[in-house]
Design a protein around this nucleic acid. Structure first.
Lengths: 342, 342
DNA sequence: CTGAAAGCGCTTACAG
DNA sequence: CTGAAAGCGCTTACAG
C-alpha cells in the first residue's frame, strides 16, 4: 500500500536528461533555462521543446548551491498566529509585499516566529541559506537577533528599529509621532481638554512614537499627560485599557487610541457603560484599517498606507538584492480621516 | 557605500571549516550535526565546540541536494490575502499546523497562491524540490493542478477534494453535510418552517456539502428547498445574500448560514431592516470562530474543530513523510453550539 | 568509531 | 555560439 503509493512518485527529470533529449550539452540547457541570449534560436527551441516534453523544473537546491542564490525572501513576523491573523494591518502589509514581489522571480516565505519556541528554528532558517533576504515586521525590543541578521543577509524592517544602534538598518515606516500629534490636535481643536491615550506595548517602537506624539500635542497646549494606559494592539486589551482610563478619570472627554483594533475594544466598553461617542467621549484611532468602518460609530482615525508600506519594503529589498543604492529610511505620510467617533 | 555594506556581509562557515577547526574529517562533523550515536563522546564535544565557536549553520541547499530532503513543508492557500486574513478559520488552521510541526524539524512555508498570477510560480515552487510535502487548504474546483501534485510529493488536503477522482488523496475534514443537517433540524425543532440558506461558493466542496445537509433536513420534513442564496464566505457576500433572500421571501423565519463571517453580514442586514433576531428570523452559522461571539446577538453555530484540523493535517503529513501508514480520510466531529441567534 | 571518495543537480568561467 | 570541467557544501555507502 505504502510502497505502491511511493512507487507512483516519479523522480523529477534533471538538466542532464533534458540535455540528452535535446542533443546538446548541459551548459546549453542551463543557458536556455536562464534566458541567455547567446544561444542559437533553433537550439533554444529544441531545448524548450525537450523541457516541455519532459516537464522539467530545475531543482532549486542544486541551483542555489551552484549560484549561491535561493530566489526566496523570508517575511518574519514575531507574533502569535492569533494576533497576526486578527489584525488587518498585517493583511495589508502582506498584500503589499506580495504585490511588490509579483513581477520578480522571488518567492515569499512567511515565518510566524513566536518569540519563544521557534526562534531558534527561525534563526537557523535565516542563517542556513534558505533565503536571500528578509523582511521583518512587528519586531519587539526583546528580539535582538534580527538586528544582527543584517550582517548575513539584506534585511528591510517594517517600522523603525527599537534600538538606536540599529539605525543603520533599512526600514520603512510612517511618522508615528506626527500622526499621533495630528490626532491629538484634532481633539484639542474640538474643544476637548481631558484627553487620554490607549497606547501599544512599550516594547514596540511604533507604540512609543505614538505616545510621544500625544504627549507633545498635550504639552504644547499646556495640558497634563497623565492619562495613559497600555494595551497590546488587540481588541481585548483596548477594552481593558478603556476601563482603566474611565476608572481613573470620570471627566475624561477624549482618547487617542494607538490602533483601530484597540479602539474597537474601547468603543464596546463605552457603549457598555452608556457613554455616548463622540458626544461625551471622542475617540481617534490609528491605522484606518477595515476595522475603522466596522464600528458604530465609525472611527475617526489616522490613516497609514499599510499596503504601500508592504510594497515599499518589497521594492527596497529587491533593490538591495540587486546591489542597487537604497535609502535607509522610507517614511510614508499619514493623514487624518474624519468619520464619526470624533 | 553599497560596497562597504556588502563587505560587512560575512561568508558563512562551511562543514570543511568546522572539520579542520576540530581536527576531524568532514564525515565526522556531518555525523555530529546529524546526531549520529556512532561518534566517540570526546569527539562529539570537540566538534560541537568548533561549531559553536564558528557559529556554524549547515547550508540547506547543499544538504537538500545531498540528502534529497528539504525539511520544509508548503502550506498552499489559493486565496487572496484579504480573504485569507479576514477569515478566522484560516488563523485556527494555521495555528494547528504550526503546533503540529513544532516538535519536528520541518519548517512551514506559507504560499498565498492567488489563483491567477502566481499559480505558475507556485507550481514551479512545488515541483522544483523546494519542499518535501504540502498541505493544501481551501482549494477550488478550478485549480486542478493540486490533485496531480500528489504524484510528486505527499499532499494532505484540508477539506474533501472536489473531484471524485481525487478521492485517493489524503484529506482532513468534518462531515459538513451532517453539521448542516444538525443546524437545520435545530431550526425545525424550534418550529421554523420557512428556512433559507446562505451557502458558500459552488466551486468549493465544503459549501456544496453544507447545502446538501440543509436540503436533506428540509426534504426530510417535507419542506421546500428553494430558498438558497450563494456567498463566497465573506461578510459582505453574506449581507447581500441576506438581502436577496429577504426580497424573495418576506415570510422567511430562519436561515442556515454556511459560515460565521457570512452570518455576521446577514445579521447586519437584518438589523438594518429592523427585523429582530432570533424572534422574527433565526440564524445558525457554521465554524464557531471568534466571529460567532462578536455579533449581537451572539451566534448559534455549528462548531468545527479548526485548530485540531490543522494539527491533524500536520500529523498526517509528517507520518506520510516518515513512510508510515496513514488513513486517507480523517473526518472530525462537529457539534451545535447554542447561543442567542437561534 | 573514522576517513577518503563519489555524487546530489545545477552554474560558470574557460577554451574553442 | 557551444562544450568540458571544476566547483557549490553537503551526505552516504564503503573500507578500514
Amino acid at each position: 500500500m505504502i510502497a505502491a503509493h511511493q512507487a507512483t512518485r516519479r523522480a523529477a527529470p534533471t538538466l542532464e536528461a533534458v540535455a540528452s533529449a535535446a542533443g546538446v550539452s548541459r551548459s546549453t540547457v542551463s543557458r536556455v533555462v536562464n534566458g541567455s541570449t547567446q544561444v542559437r534560436p533553433d537550439v533554444v527551441d529544441a531545448v524548450n521543446a525537450a523541457i516541455a516534453r519532459l516537464d522539467y523544473v530545475p531543482n532549486r537546491a542544486a541551483r542555489s548551491l551552484a549560484s549561491r542564490q535561493t530566489m526566496a525572501i523570508a517575511l518574519i513576523v514575531p507574533e502569535e498566529a492569533a494576533r497576526f491573523f486578527g489584525d488587518p494591518f498585517f493583511a495589508a502589509i502582506v498584500q503589499g509585499i506580495t504585490r511588490g514581489l509579483e513581477s520578480s522571480d522571488y518567492v515569499l516565505n512567511l515565518q510566524l516566529a513566536s518569540r519563544t519556541s521557534t526562534s531558534l528554528k527561525t534563526k537557523k532558517y535565516l542563517l542556513g541559506g534558505n533565503v536571500d533576504g528578509a523582511i521583518v515586521v512587528s519586531h519587539h525590543s526583546d528580539v535582538e537577533f534580527f538586528s544582527e541578521l543584517d550582517a548575513t543577509i539584506p534585511v528591510v524592517f517594517g517600522g523603525r528599529p527599537f534600538h538606536p544602534e540599529q539605525h543603520s538598518n533599512y526600514f520603512v515606516d510612517v511618522d508615528n509621532a506626527a500622526g499621533a500629534a495630528l490626532a491629538t490636535e484634532y481633539l484639542l481643536d474640538k474643544g476637548r481638554r481631558r484627553i487620554g491615550t490607549i497606547s501599544g506595548p512599550v516594547d514596540m517602537q511604533a507604540a512609543n512614537d505614538r505616545s510621544k506624539g500625544w504627549v507633545s500635542a498635550l504639552t504644547g497646549a499646556g495640558l497634563p499627560t497623565d492619562l495613559i494606559a497600555h494595551g497590546d494592539f488587540t481588541m481585548a486589551s483596548g477594552a481593558s485599557a478603556m476601563r482603566d482610563l474611565l476608572d481613573r478619570e470620570p471627566n475624561l472627554d477624549a482618547v487617542f487610541v494607538a490602533s483601530d483594533l484597540m479602539a474597537m475594544g474601547a468603543i464596546s466598553v463605552l457603549r457598555e457603560r452608556g457613554i455616548s461617542v463622540p458626544d461625551q467621549v471622542s475617540l481617534v484611532g490609528f491605522d484606518d484599517s477595515p476595522a475603522a468602518t466596522s464600528t458604530d460609530p465609525q472611527l475617526t482615525t489616522v490613516h497609514q498606507p499599510s499596503t504601500e508600506m508592504g510594497l515599499r519594503m518589497a521594492h527596497n529589498l529587491l533593490a538591495l538584492l540587486a546591489g542597487e543604492e537604497v535609502e535607509r529610511q522610507s517614511i510614508l505620510p499619514t493623514r487624518l480621516v474624519v468619520r464619526d467617533s470624533a
